[in-house]
Design a protein around this nucleic acid. Structure first.
Lengths: 141, 141
DNA sequence: CTTGAACCATTCAAGCTGCAATTATCATGA
DNA sequence: TCATGATAATTGCAGCTTGAATGGTTCAAG
């Protein structure tokens, strides 16, 4: 009936499971610290990526999600007075996203928190470096 | 003002980005092959994990999601006559999930597809092995 | 037998996400 | 100038996911 899968195939499946497992742990880490600051994970990710003024599309690329998604998330952040949508200086189509002083202050607190107890703490620096190389190669630099 | 982050911190952030990036690529791979079979990614994951009869909770653990989520996903699969909810032989609280013949046939086709063009094909077997070790260590054996 | 704690599945509300269609604006070339 | 195609953001819709109740069931202690 079903041909039993080759060892190589099984190994790849396990590997996929490990990668997604670690990714879930990282996401959980973000979620916890975000919740402690009254943010959802998506809102925290947006805040984290807002290192300076940018457009909606630029933020979407940094968050690797659809622009329509950032519309939703920025709506929430704007309701909390953390972000402002201003007209873009040179392109009337675009919005210029700017952190309010409150938003900037919350962002620094978030970044501080996110560096604490990293999900990768179980790895020695040299192992992290090795992991970095392998992941880059897997993705295709 | 803001103390500039240490190199070690920056390295960990990059690493997190790489892990989630690869995880997204894996998810995309599943999504594509699922769509080709008329399934959503979540439905495909459920089907993939159903290697035999199991309860809702067991499936939730395999999919690493909440039980309420599997209720939703199994609803969809049941509507397509791919899965049946039967009473559990020994525990009247639980449901016994069983693939229909149609579901079993689709599952084998899905597994075949998922092994094609793995997102980890960019890595030599020995590198995959190294990655495996590092990920296990990062997660904590 | 009865009680109470633990457990299974489900429901519901809220939020996340992607895709397609829409509107406004930009930029290019005839 | 003006038409045409590309781009920025938004809206609507459908599906995914979680977390907190809820109702039925099991199990062990009394």
């Amino acid at each position: 009936m079903t041909t039993s899968p080759e060892p190589q195939v099984i190994a790849e499946r396990q590997l996929c499971g490990l990668v997604t497992g670690l990714a879930q742990r990282i996401a959980e880490h973000v979620r916890e610290h975000a919740a402690a600051l009254g943010l959802t994970a998506a809102q925290a990710t947006a805040l984290r990526e807002m290192s300076g003024p940018m457009t909606m599309r630029e933020l979407a690329e940094r968050m690797s999600c659809e622009p329509s998604n950032t519309t939703f998330v920025i709506d929430k952040l704007e309701q909390q007075n953390l972000v402002e949508r201003r007209p873009h200086p040179t392109d009337r189509r675009a919005k210029h996203l700017v952190l309010t002083s409150e938003g900037a202050e919350l962002r620094t607190r978030l970044l501080e928190r996110l560096t604490e107890g990293s999900p990768l703490a179980g790895l020695a620096p040299q192992d992290q470096q090795a992991l970095h190389r392998l992941l880059e190669q897997a993705i295709g630099h």
